[in-house]
């Protein structure tokens, strides 16, 4: 009971903060939408059809959803650094709640916020010419949630290790941009030079972006935009398995790491 209460309160605080902060919501979806419409229209006009029936904008759309979810969940997870800087973390650390449950609550909060932002991008599907059935949306939401949990807990874990704002500001761009660029948001990671291909396969976000793309483009069999790992063609469930395994490991380490900090 004690643990559940801890998870809930930490999550609840993130919801309160999110509810107060309209500017943050607009900021969080503005950049992805800019990428979607400017790159989609600009580059798309020169590229033509990537696969039969799929133009660049349609290819980009699920990638942008993935980008929105992974970037925002990661950033929210890492925001624990700001709580430390502004002192609020102390209030949490001396509270009679389990510290591991604080890590879980923070991850869930980050994931919830990221999914709401991802869903706003999802509303633009008709403008891009992507048709989503209710069944597809029902599968997209848990996929986005899985990606958000994996990235959110990764962020929380980092935040327990980064002690200063200066280090945080230096490290963040070095992590987020490669993670986004090498996750298949803007191009298929199978049609790139080997070194990029290898880095993309190491990047856990790649599997999340691929899952979302396969579902959103009605490509469940994976025939059109398939990942292969060590020559093995990855099915949707293979990708889900890898992302879930990464997420589970991250959240367990984050719980441990949160519990041991002084």
């Amino acid at each position: 009971m004690n643990n559940l209460r801890g998870v809930y309160t930490i999550w609840y605080r993130d919801m309160l903060r999110f509810g107060r902060d309209r500017v943050r919501l607009i900021g969080a979806v503005f950049m992805p939408l800019l990428f979607l419409f400017v790159f989609g229209s600009g580059l798309g006009a020169q590229m033509g059809m990537l696969r039969p029936g799929i133009n660049f904008s349609q290819f980009l759309f699920p990638g942008i959803i993935g980008m929105t979810v992974l970037m925002n969940s990661f950033m929210s997870g890492v925001s624990v650094v700001w709580d430390r800087e502004f002192g609020f973390l102390k209030e949490v650390l001396v509270a009679p709640i389990n510290r591991a449950s604080v890590a879980v609550g923070k991850t869930l909060g980050a994931a919830t916020v990221a999914i709401i932002q991802g869903m706003i991008i999802l509303l633009f599907a008709p403008l891009i010419g992507v048709s989503l059935s209710p069944g597809m949306v029902a599968m997209l939401l848990p996929s986005m949630f899985l990606l958000a949990i994996a990235m959110g807990s990764f962020g929380v874990l980092l935040a327990t290790r980064i002690r200063t704002i200066e280090a945080f500001q230096a490290i963040m761009p070095m992590l987020t941009f490669p993670m986004i660029f090498l996750s298949g948001v803007f191009f298929s990671v199978e049609d790139v030079p080997l070194w990029m291909n290898i880095l993309s396969k190491i990047n856990p976000a790649t599997y999340g972006v691929t899952i979302i793309r396969q579902i959103a483009l009605g490509d469940m069999s994976g025939a059109t935009f398939e990942l292969s790992l060590f020559g093995h063609p990855m099915s949707l469930w293979n990708n889900v398995g890898i992302l879930a395994a990464f997420g589970a490991v991250m959240i367990l380490i984050a719980m441990r790491s949160f519990g041991s900090q002084e």
Partner: peptide, 18 residues
């Protein structure tokens, strides 16, 4: 050690829950 983005009531409500 307050959450400066929340109001006074919300800070206390959070504490009461925890």
């Amino acid at each position: 050690s307050l959450d400066e983005r929340l109001n006074g009531l919300q800070n206390l409500y959070f504490h009461a829950l925890v």
